[in-house]
């Protein structure tokens, strides 16, 4: 009897992990409906609609993101709130010294990555580290460090619900073109481009994985597989390794350019960070 119960529970768990996604569901977080479907922007030639990766996840995974108490990513936002007020570095400053409340950074995430004053394309991690090294005179954080992930989650949360809206013209255009070229370039022994899976085959199963459009509006993401938060560039790296390709480095110009292009493909989708995915 006991064994039977365990077996049934196991079976239920297995079924839950492969439960079909509800692609028609609405993402309502703490009473606010986020935009998970939007008309494709003109610069995305081959899509008519852009869709959040949330739509492609199982009911159980979807549910985790609808309540901030259930969202395991929110623990790390709380940790970042502590860091926000902590003085670090020779200048004797905390984040709060310049930015006061995190809510002052509302909207920032929608525009990332963004060209800086020197004409370089920077991701949010680069801006955070510029604050740390230039203003705080503190050590920079590593790209995938817990401190960095926590902080990008906190900053992203301030823009939750706001539509992604990165600049792709002017000084950003050449970076955008670079990212676009990468998106359609086949890499690795499996010889696949981002587009092969995420443009041509979203909605299809590839073995046990339900292919999404590869949107990045939900990052940093709490990924159940990682049992923690991860950056956009970490996900890129994983994708490249899956196709047996030598990944670019996290924080590299290449990944940041690809990030810009992908961010532009999600124009109109709500910022969801920290989102929950499998």
């Amino acid at each position: 009897m006991k064994i039977r119960t365990i077996t049934t529970a196991l079976a239920a768990a297995v079924l839950a992990s492969v439960a079909p996604a509800d692609e028609d569901a609405d993402l309502v977080v703490e009473g606010e409906t986020l935009i998970t479907r939007a008309p494709a922007p003109a610069h995305v030639e081959n899509l008519t609609e852009v869709l959040s990766g949330w739509l492609f996840r199982s009911d159980e995974t979807q549910a985790l993101q609808t309540d901030d108490f259930d969202n395991p990513g929110m623990i790390f936002v709380d940790q970042a709130l502590d860091t926000w007020d902590e003085v670090d570095g020779a200048a004797g400053k905390a984040c709060a010294s310049c930015h006061e409340d995190p809510s002052s950074l509302a909207g920032v995430r929608t525009t990332m990555p963004k060209v800086n004053e020197d004409g370089e394309l920077w991701a949010m991690e680069d801006y955070v580290n510029d604050c740390r090294t230039t203003r705080m005179e503190a050590e920079p954080w590593k790209w995938e460090s817990q401190d960095m992930l926590n902080m990008t989650a906190l900053v992203s949360l301030q823009s939750r619900g706001m539509p992604m809206n990165v600049a792709i013209d002017g000084p950003a255009q050449s970076y955008w073109e670079q990212g676009k070229e990468m998106y359609y370039t086949r890499y690795g022994q499996l010889d696949m481009a981002c587009a092969n899976c995420h443009e041509d085959n979203y909605g299809n199963m590839i073995r046990a994985d339900h292919l999404s459009q590869g949107q990045i509006n939900g990052f940093p993401v709490y990924r159940l597989k990682w049992a923690g938060l991860g950056s956009i560039h970490r996900r890129f790296k994983g994708c490249m390794e899956n196709i047996r390709a030598e990944p670019f480095k996290r924080g590299s110009d290449e990944f940041t350019a690809l990030e810009l292009y992908l961010a532009s493909r999600g124009e109109g989708l709500s910022v969801e960070g920290p989102s929950v995915r499998n």
Partner: peptide, 17 residues
């Protein structure tokens, strides 16, 4: 999208392995 299962050249950024 199908990989070539018996081709050993012409790849971009193939993992060293």
């Amino acid at each position: 999208i199908m990989p070539a299962f018996y081709r050993d050249t012409g790849y971009s950024r193939i993992l060293p392995d």
